[in-house]
Amino acid sequence: MVDDERAIRLLCRVNLAASGMEVIEAADGRAGLELARKERPDLVLLDVMMPDVDGWTVARELAEGMETRDIPVVFLTARADTADKRLGEQLGGVGYLVKPFDPVAIGDYVEDVLSRIERGEREQLRREISSGRER
């Protein structure tokens, strides 16, 4: 979970934990990159607007790294423009959640994404980002 807003991190951690997931957190882009490289999480929830290194940069660098390119990235951001979603898709995201979101549903959402990736639908998930299907 990479987000500079403590409140958002807390929301995600509590609700994902309720679904039995383990959450590790970073408060900015640089820390998030380091953490992802080190821990190789099953999925990254990534904010976009962060000081210094933003979420786009994090996603790009993860996609370029040999060890991190397979880690699925779900953007979780206040940026709701179509152009932003398209960028998220181009950067290889598998999901795009716009704030405000329902944290209660986030556990089920992440499970769904992971199982679809397992079924080989990663590319389809990516295309769904800008195809207008709301989550």
Partner: peptide, 16 residues
């Protein structure tokens, strides 16, 4: 954008 983040926090906290 600015309103979305605090809104997300408030809404999310209440939902949780």
């Amino acid at each position: 954008h600015e309103l979305r983040t605090p809104l997300a926090a408030v809404y999310g906290a209440v939902r949780t």
